[in-house]
């Protein structure tokens, strides 16, 4: 894909497929993180949700990105459960709503991610450093937009976004959780990486892998 050209539905599907494979592979690791500070089901739920997403998408691939993301969001909302279902569902629904039917440019993709992250923040009423998905997603969205603004290629921008997401996820380790079940632990939530931030960093890394060339 050359810069400025439209991002195709097939590319977005490939991104989702990569993320689904990562969720299957990382299921136990995510669940272990969640057992430390939550209820021990994040990996199980995300794997179940992304399997459902790929089944739906493969059965009938929607024609454009908005329709695709609506399918993805609704599948996650109905299959993931917990807090992650509505939050990831909202991320993809808002991503899709921000995408026009006429195809996405890299700048458009960045705007869609930013809209998705804003949706997650509104739904979860979470701020940065609450030790949530937002701690990975917001730095990623900011980094992708900033890199494109500086003239970076889409591949480089996504790589910087993925780095920022992973750094943000790692930075949740010392934080005391203020949202979700981890918040019940108070100070005892410090010292553990947030599972939601971790799966979110995987999502952005999958995008960087998909559009690496």
């Amino acid at each position: 894909m050359s810069d400025g050209a439209a991002i195709t539905v097939d590319e977005v599907v490939a991104w989702l497929r990569d993320f689904a494979a990562v969720m299957a592979r990382e299921k136990d690791a995510l669940t272990a993180l969640d057992s430390a500070i939550g209820d021990g089901d994040h990996g199980i739920n995300m794997d179940r949700g992304m399997r459902a997403v790929m089944e739906k998408v493969d059965a009938a691939t929607p024609a454009d990105v908005p329709a695709l993301m609506k399918t993805v969001g609704m599948a996650l909302i109905s299959k993931v459960g917990g807090a992650a279902g509505p939050l990831y569902g909202t991320l993809f629904l808002q991503f899709g709503s921000a995408a026009g039917p006429d195809g996405l440019t890299p700048d458009g993709w960045a705007a869609c991610l930013a809209a998705g992250v804003a949706g997650v923040r509104a739904r979860g009423k979470a701020e940065l450093e609450d030790k949530t998905m937002v701690d990975a997603l917001q730095p990623a969205a900011d980094a992708v937009s900033a890199a494109l603004g500086e003239g970076a290629s889409f591949a480089d921008a996504l790589a910087r976004g993925a780095d920022a997401a992973e750094e943000g996820a790692r930075a949740t380790i010392p934080l005391v959780a203020r949202k979700g079940r981890a918040s019940y632990l108070g100070e005892r939530s410090a010292g553990h990486q947030d599972p939601g931030a971790t799966s979110s960093a995987h999502l952005v890394r999958s995008a960087a892998r998909m559009w690496a060339v």
């Binding site: 739920n45 609704m74 909302i77 299959k79 459960g81 917990g82």
Partner: peptide, 12 residues
Amino acid sequence: PGEVFTSPTPDQ
């Protein structure tokens, strides 16, 4: 009923 220890979903 949701999955074990997991909230049910809005469509449900």
